[in-house]
Design a protein around this nucleic acid. Structure first.
Length: 413
DNA sequence: TCTGGGGTCCTAGGACCC
DNA sequence: TCTGGGGTCCTAGGACCC
C-alpha cells in the first residue's frame, strides 16, 4: 500500500498558522511578481477564484468579498514544508518527498493503513498546524487519485482499490496524475472520460495517444506498480533562475544587472548541491500577452571548457550571451539563466593545464558566501549585480519570515 | 496597466559514423 | 536502369508535474 500525504491549500495554510484570524475567511497567495493566484483557501475557491488565474482578473472580486491577498513567502513555505516532512518521516520506513507539499509513504506491511493515516494526519496537524489529506492505493497513481477524492468529500483519509469501479468513474480524465489538458482532450476524443475509462481502454489505443508514459499510467490505475519510490532526491540535471520584471525593461545595462543576479543565484544553487555546470543558457523575452507590441524572444547556449560553479565566470559568460541576443527597441518582460548538464563536483574532470590561481578564487568565493550568510545579501555582491535594481519584481504584501529570520520572529504577549 | 517559476521525461528528426 | 543497412548522438519541441 502506498500513501500520499498532501498538505491542504499549502501556502494559505502556512500563512494561517501565524495569522489564525485568517481561519474561515477567503485567502489567496499570489505567484512571484504578484502575478497569479497559486494558492486559495476553500472559501476563496467557493468565490470562483480558479488556480493560476491572473490576479488583475479577480482583483475586483477580491475587493468586493474581502479576500485577503498575500504575496508568496517562499522562505516560510520552505521551512514549514521541512517541518511537515520531519513529522511524516517518523511514520514510514520508506518515503519520497515529491514536492513542497506532498510526500509518498510506503505502507507495505502496515496492518491498518487507514488507522495509521488518521494518526499521521492528527499528529501533523497538532505539531505543525498544517492540515493534510492522505490518499491510499496500491500504486502511486491510485494514491494520488484517492487523495483527490478525499479532498472532494472532506474525509481527510481515503483508500481506493483498483476494483472499486464506482470510485474510479468519479475522477475526470484530466484530473488523473500524468494526464494534463492536452492528453485530456485527445483521450476524450476517443471516448475516454474518466479514470475508469482509461483503465479499461485498449492498451494499443492508449499507447498511440500518449506513448509509453500514458501506458504506464494506465497500468498503474489497474494496480500494477510501474512508478517506483525515490527515497533519495536525484541530483538535478539543470538549474534555472529567472524572474519577470516588475516593469518592462528596455536598456541593455538593466538587463545585464538582472541577468548577473540570476547567474549568481543559479551558481549558489549548484554549489549548494555540490554540482558543477557544464554549460549555460541565457534567455530573454518580451511580454507575450501584449499582442500589439513588437515581440522578440531568444536564447543562446555555451559550453564551459571545464565544469564550473565559479560565480564570476558564470556571470561573465552570462553577460556575453545576453549581449549576443539583445536587440534594441523591445520592452523586455523576463530573462533568465539556466545552468546545464550538472555533474558532481567530486567526479568532475579538470583541465589538463589548471588555470593559475584557481585555488585562490575558490577561497574567495567561500569567504564571500560566509560574509553574505552572516551579514545579509547586501554585505557583499559582484559589481555587475548593480545597486538600483529598478527591474526587480513586485512583492507588495509579503508576510514576515516568521520561522527563518530573527527580526521576523512572532512576538507572543 | 496588470498574466509565475522550476523542473522532468519522451519523441522525432537531422547529422554523422562505418 | 539501378542508389543499403544499421547504428549513435544531439536538439528542439511537446507533454507532464507542482
Amino acid at each position: 500500500m502506498i500513501a500520499l500525504a498532501d498538505c491542504n491549500n499549502f501556502y494559505v495554510s502556512c500563512e494561517r498558522v501565524f495569522r489564525p484570524s485568517l481561519e474561515g475567511r477567503p485567502v489567496i497567495v499570489l505567484s512571484n511578481n504578484d502575478g497569479c493566484a497559486v494558492a486559495r483557501s476553500n472559501e476563496a475557491k467557493e468565490l470562483g477564484i480558479s488556480m493560476g488565474v491572473p490576479y488583475h482578473q479577480v482583483k475586483k472580486l477580491c475587493e468586493r468579498n474581502g479576500v485577503t491577498v498575500l504575496s508568496s513567502n517562499y522562505e516560510l513555505y520552505g521551512d514549514m514544508s521541512r517541518r511537515v516532512v520531519s513529522v511524516l518521516s517518523r511514520f514510514a520506513s520508506e518515503m519520497e518527498v515529491y514536492s513542497i507539499d506532498e510526500s509518498f509513504l510506503n505502507f507495505d506491511g502496515v496492518e491498518s493503513p487507514l488507522d495509521l493515516s488518521r494518526r499521521i494526519r492528527e499528529t501533523v496537524g497538532r505539531w505543525t498546524g498544517i492540515p493534510i489529506s492522505i490518499g491510499l492505493g496500491s500504486t502511486k497513481t491510485l494514491s494520488k487519485l484517492a487523495n483527490r477524492l478525499s479532498k472532494k468529500d472532506g474525509a481527510g483519509c481515503l483508500e481506493i482499490r483498483e476494483t472499486d469501479l464506482e470510485a474510479l468513474a468519479k475522477v475526470e480524465v484530466e484530473d488523473i496524475w500524468g494526464v494534463g489538458r492536452r492528453l485530456g482532450v485527445r483521450l476524450r476524443r476517443i471516448g475516454v472520460r474518466n479514470a475508469l475509462g482509461l483503465a479499461e481502454a485498449p492498451t494499443s489505443a492508449i499507447r498511440s495517444v500518449g506513448g509509453v508514459t500514458l501506458e504506464r499510467t494506465q497500468r498503474e490505475l489497474g494496480g500494477l506498480r510501474c512508478i517506483g519510490m525515490e527515497e533519495m532526491p536525484q541530483p538535478k540535471k539543470n538549474t534555472c533562475s529567472s524572474r519577470s520584471f516588475g516593469k518592462p525593461v528596455t536598456e541593455l545595462e538593466d538587463l545585464e544587472e538582472a541577468v548577473a543576479n540570476y547567474a549568481v543565484k543559479a551558481s549558489c544553487k549548484v554549489r549548494k548541491e555540490g554540482s558543477l555546470a557544464s554549460g549555460i543558457q541565457v534567455f530573454l523575452t518580451t511580454n507575450r500577452f501584449s499582442e500589439n507590441l513588437p515581440q522578440y524572444a531568444n536564447s543562446r547556449t555555451l559550453a564551459f571548457d571545464e565544469p564550473t560553479d565559479d560565480p564570476i565566470r558564470i556571470v561573465t559568460n552570462a553577460k556575453i550571451l545576453l549581449r549576443s541576443i539583445y536587440r534594441q527597441g523591445f520592452a523586455y518582460k523576463k530573462a533568465g539563466v539556466i545552468l546545464l548538464d550538472l555533474v558532481s563536483s567530486k567526479r568532475s574532470q579538470g583541465l589538463l593545464f589548471e588555470e593559475h590561481g584557481s585555488e585562490n578564487r575558490k577561497r574567495f568565493v567561500r569567504s564571500m558566501e560566509q560574509v553574505v550568510a552572516t551579514y545579509g545579501p547586501n554585505a557583499g555582491f559582484i559589481g555587475a549585480q548593480g545597486i538600483n535594481r529598478s527591474w526587480s519584481m513586485k512583492r507588495e504584501s509579503r508576510t514576515p519570515r516568521y520561522t527563518t529570520s530573527w527580526e521576523d520572529l512572532p512576538v507572543v504577549g
